[in-house]
Amino acid sequence: MSTEILVYILTPLAAVVVVLTRLRLARGDAVAGQFQISERLLLLHTVAGTIALLLWVPFLAFPEDSFLGGSLVGIVALGFFWLTVMAGLLILTRWLPTRGRHADDRATDGWSKGPGLSILAHVGLLVGVSVFTYAYLTSAV
């Protein structure tokens, strides 16, 4: 499978990760995991992911010689994607185990019984953004 096709397949999946993370964690009091995460971290993930997608999709759709298809738009979009990945990996820290006599049990929600869905989404986003970066650097897109 060519890198270009892979980029076009992974782009909507990146949007799904951003949207589902926001939906899952929007209720601040009843989210799954060991720790509560900062609302600012969730906001950073959502805003950076949205900006990345709003720049990346036109970058893919418009010709190279246009402003929206130009390399500056692609670089800025990749920067926001990497910011989204870092925020997403920090969101995963809510699943880190705690030790000690007064450690609370993990909270659960209706989405899953453990961190599997979150790990799949955010490690998948890391792989996807790595593919985007590789495709950009090799001029595949």
Rank of each mutant, 00 (worst) to 15 (best):
L60M: 13
S130Y: 07
A121N: 10
L126S: 12
E64W: 01
T138F: 09
G79V: 05
W56V: 05
G79I: 01
R99V: 11
G70D: 00
Y134V: 15
A135T: 10
L72H: 09
L53G: 12
L42V: 10
D104Q: 14
A121Y: 07
G69Y: 00
L43E: 12
G116N: 11
R94E: 03
L137E: 14
S130Q: 11
A135V: 08
P97Q: 09
I75Y: 03
W56S: 09
L43P: 01
V131R: 06
M86T: 07
I119N: 11
R101M: 06
G70I: 01
Y136I: 10
D109L: 14
T84E: 09
A61E: 05
M86D: 06
A52P: 04
F80H: 02
L96K: 12
A77E: 01
A135M: 10
G128T: 11
Y134Q: 08
D105G: 10
A52S: 14
L55M: 11
I119Q: 11
I91N: 07
T133I: 06
I91A: 03
T138C: 07
F62V: 07
L96H: 08
L60E: 13
L55T: 05
G116A: 14
L44N: 13
L90K: 09
S112I: 10
L89E: 09
V129E: 06
V141G: 06
F80Q: 02
P58W: 04
S130R: 06
E64C: 03
T46K: 06
A87S: 13
P115I: 02
L42Q: 06
W95V: 04
L90A: 14
V141Y: 05
W95D: 05
T50A: 15
W111M: 12
L96R: 14
V73K: 03
A103C: 04
R106V: 08
G70V: 03
L83E: 03
A77W: 01
V76M: 04
V85M: 08
H102E: 14
W111C: 08
D105N: 09
L72F: 13
Y136R: 12
G74L: 01
V57W: 00
T93I: 03
L44I: 15
F80W: 00
P58D: 03
S71V: 09
L68F: 15
A107F: 07
F81V: 01
W82T: 06
T84K: 05
R99N: 10
V73Y: 01
L60S: 10
L42H: 02
W82G: 03
R99K: 11
S66Q: 09
G49D: 11
L92Q: 12
S118M: 15
L53Q: 08
F62Y: 14
T84R: 07
L83C: 11
V73G: 00
G124K: 13
K113D: 12
F67P: 00
E64P: 12
G74M: 02
P63R: 07
L96T: 11
T108E: 12
W82M: 02
I119E: 06
W95E: 02
V76G: 03
